[in-house]
Design a binder for these strands. Sequence first.
DNA 1: CTATTATATTACTATATGGTAGTATTATTG
DNA 2: CAATAATACTACCATATAGTAATATAATAG
Lengths: 118, 118
Amino acid sequence: MSDLSAAALTQVADYFKVLSELSRLQVLCALKSGTKNVSEIMDATGLGQANVSKHLKMLTQAGMVKRQPQGVSVYYQIADPLIFDLCELVCQGLEARLQAQSQQLQQLEILRQPPSNR
Amino acid sequence: MSDLSAAALTQVADYFKVLSELSRLQVLCALKSGTKNVSEIMDATGLGQANVSKHLKMLTQAGMVKRQPQGVSVYYQIADPLIFDLCELVCQGLEARLQAQSQQLQQLEILRQPPSNR
DNA sequence: CTATTATATTACTATATGGTAGTATTATTG
DNA sequence: CAATAATACTACCATATAGTAATATAATAG
């Protein structure tokens, strides 16, 4: 757990770090429906050009996205569908937690009823 | 993809962000084998006291870890086993990528054989 | 070759955060 | 109550990084 896998854990942490920014998740979501070039990604996400370019570089280096120049523009596509499995799992977890919280709130509501007699 | 789920994507990003640091993954791994108090976590990870405390706070707020004071010490345990499923998936993905890379290296090796005759 | 368009890179600022020393808080013991 | 031990909090520094403006590079059209 300590020495041996510290390097491995670092790689896992780095992978998660790429997925830990709204803008990059937006780029990935924009590519979920299919291949897009940089301009199309900018339109889909509303992010600036330099910004999109930077994020795409990170995503490419992380192996999550594949880059293919085509004429004057460059098309990108999802290279690692695992990403969406991960997001799906996290969403399910968050959803479950929200439901639990709303249940707790309901119970508080019940307790908050003013005493009917006394 | 754009407006509606931006808030949802932010939550997903925040979740990943908690998992995107080596120290926090080390804390989680230390807790994988069972409940531990802060001192034990410090021993297992080699992290400083204030540092562990801060990370534990983040992990608790993210719902990944459960806090239970017991006498003078405070015990923590994994509250969300999903974490390890996520790490497992990422590890598998990284492993697959490494294998592919080593395969590519092998092919390069073959090409690098010096011409036997001429 | 020149102009134009698409993308990438660089330099910079503002912000966020990991680590740590010092201090505060809380529980236990005598 | 005083002393001690375990944990939490605060203030601070150093570093990393998201966003952006300006510039560079590459490909195509004329």
